[in-house]
């Protein structure tokens, strides 16, 4: 049976009807229409479903909905400020850091949590943080450069031009 639950997503309390043993990912995507987090594996192996809960990057595919009640959840959609990409999202645009883009939610959310914890993270820090995030298109070089645009802005370089 479904149950009524309240979760706080991107600063707002949301009431949803869902199976209590269900995972947070499906509530975000199917009940709330937030498509930033993606289903990749459902096994905590790829990072496509990453969200930030109370400042920590988490795999929403294995986060029980019940455990998300009362917590502060941020999705990719919630990073944008007044409808504008936040600095990290803008850095991904500036570096043209996506191919299919299916992994990019996880890359940005994981890196965002890192930056909030460690604003001047080094390349090694970034790699270590993103180690659990898979990208099949091979966008890794651009993803690293995009994150570095925020962590070490003086070293930034432009895409393409």
């Amino acid at each position: 049976m479904t149950q009524t639950m309240v979760i706080n997503v991107n600063g707002q309390d949301q009431t949803i009807e869902a199976e209590p043993d269900s995972m947070l990912l499906y509530a975000l995507r199917d009940n709330l229409g937030l498509h930033g987090p993606k289903f990749g594996c459902g096994l905590s192996q790829c990072g496509a479903c990453t969200i930030i809960m109370n400042g920590v990057a988490l795999h929403s595919c294995v986060t029980p909905l019940a455990a998300a009640q009362g917590q502060k959840i941020t999705t990719l959609e919630g990073l944008s400020e007044n409808g504008k990409p936040n600095p990290l999202q803008q850095a991904f645009i500036d570096e043209q850091a996506a191919q299919c883009g299916y992994c990019i939610n996880g890359m940005i959310m994981t890196a965002q949590a890192l930056i909030e914890r460690k604003p001047h993270a080094s390349r090694d820090d970034i790699k270590a943080a993103l180690q659990g995030n898979l990208c099949r298109c091979g966008t890794h070089m651009r993803i690293l450069r995009a994150v570095e645009r925020v962590t070490t802005p003086q070293a930034q370089q432009g895409a393409g031009q």
Partner: peptide, 23 residues
């Protein structure tokens, strides 16, 4: 010339509709 990709802004903000997102 360099022209920015049309799909990337929506892909990095969550506004993009993949087939996985179709309802």
């Amino acid at each position: 010339r360099f022209v920015p990709r049309k799909d990337i802004p929506a892909k990095v903000t969550g506004a993009f509709t993949y087939v996985q997102d179709v309802k």
